[in-house]
């Protein structure tokens, strides 16, 4: 991180403070696309943070770009900013034109696409479940297997059929099906394989989780300092103090995980991304549980803001791989290094 990341953090904080209000959240949760909010984000250029400069983006390293998603997680931003960033990054690296508007990537979870050359163009078919924000995407970036190896295809919304679904936070997670002919100009060899795409997603969710955990910590500190029971703010009770201390520890760990994820992407060290998502996922569950316990019943209501972070945390920790999946990746790499080189593995990883 650097001056660039400080500037990005400040820019993103100001942008979300100006354009993201309670009504924006409520409308988004009811299924309305927050068009004005998206327009402001797109205007800021943040969505292209990781898009290569040659493709019209800022071409930032992950260590800088992930800061934006960290702020977005703190703001509970109801937009596919992470997905648009990944899509722009991949399209640019593949040498494809980066479409304007919100973008998404698939498969993010289950599903698969197959592509083959057909005349001057390509034929692509397949289905993917739980594609983030698919119904609102101006372009969908699909990773498909082909006889030439993995390819990336940018498809239009009207080329897919869509079955809507949501995650726990009411964010769209749709199933898409495609069987279509594509122009050669929107298909290129992919810069990542399926595991690489999953790692990118895991790194993005790690950044968002760290932000949302920090939001919960801020919110809960405020609450326990103002809520009075037995004649004093409940934050004066040692039981509450120790819960908040543990929550702050998970917040620190999640922020450190974000740093590991960024290093892992920038330095090409996949195991760091795996460790990051594993640790952040754990922090997500622990912090959400403590925030709810400290808040009591008010935290359980739709009216109060807590659920906008806790529901996202419960969704995000399972997206792009849960803790167990990523722990296995780290664990297998560690035992492959072996007992006598475990420390070398941890310091080089």
């Amino acid at each position: 991180m650097s001056e660039t990341s400080d500037l990005l953090r400040a820019t993103a904080e100001r942008l979300f403070a100006d354009h993201l209000h309670k009504e924006t959240h409520e409308a988004a949760e009811a299924g309305t696309w927050p068009a004005a909010l998206w327009a402001a984000v797109e205007e800021s250029g943040l969505a292209g943070a990781m898009t290569p400069e040659a493709a019209g983006g800022a071409g930032l390293e992950a260590s800088d770009a992930l800061v934006v998603l960290n702020v977005a997680g703190h703001a509970r931003l109801p937009l596919p900013l992470a997905e648009t960033m990944i899509a722009g990054h991949l399209l640019g690296r593949a040498g494809l034109k980066v479409a304007a508007g919100p973008l998404t990537i698939a498969p993010a979870a289950g599903g698969a696409f197959a592509a083959r050359r057909q005349g001057a163009g390509w034929w692509i078919e397949g289905e993917a479940a739980r594609v983030p924000w698919a119904r609102h995407a101006a372009g969908l970036v699909l990773l498909a297997d082909s006889p030439d190896g993995p390819v990336l295809a940018l498809v239009n919304p009207d080329q897919v059929s869509l079955r809507p679904g949501t995650n726990l936070a009411s964010e769209p997670r749709d199933t898409i099906t495609i069987a279509a002919t594509l122009d050669a100009g929107v298909v290129a060899p992919s810069p990542v394989d399926a595991a690489g795409l999953r790692r990118l997603g895991a790194a993005m969710r790690t950044a968002q989780i760290a932000g949302a955990v920090r939001f919960l910590l801020d919110l809960t500190i405020d609450y326990v300092n103002t809520r009075v029971q037995f004649g004093k703010p409940i934050g004066r009770f040692q039981a509450i103090q120790h819960m908040l201390a543990v929550m702050a520890e998970h917040s620190a760990a999640a922020e450190a995980a974000l740093g590991l994820a960024a290093d892992g992407l920038d330095a090409g060290r996949p195991v760091l991304v795996a460790a990051a998502k594993a640790r952040a996922g754990e922090a997500a569950g622990q912090a959400a549980a403590i925030a709810h316990q400290a808040h009591g019943a008010i935290g359980f209501t739709r009216e109060y803001d807590l659920h906008r972070a806790s529901r996202r945390l419960w969704a995000w920790r399972d997206e792009f791989g849960n803790e167990a999946e990523w722990q296995r990746v780290v664990g297998r790499a560690a035992v492959a290094a072996g007992a006598d080189d475990l420390w070398t593995f941890l310091t080089a990883a």
């Binding site: 760990a253 450190a256 795996a274 722990q327 296995r328 297998r332 035992v335 941890l346």
Partner: peptide, 24 residues
């Protein structure tokens, strides 16, 4: 060298904790 899923998860979790703590 050939861990069960459970063993891999245990080692992976502890390693992830060490990596984050070391960074902090």
């Amino acid at each position: 060298p050939d861990p069960s899923d459970r063993a891999a998860e245990a080692i992976g979790r502890l390693s992830a904790h060490i990596l984050t703590l070391r960074r902090l």
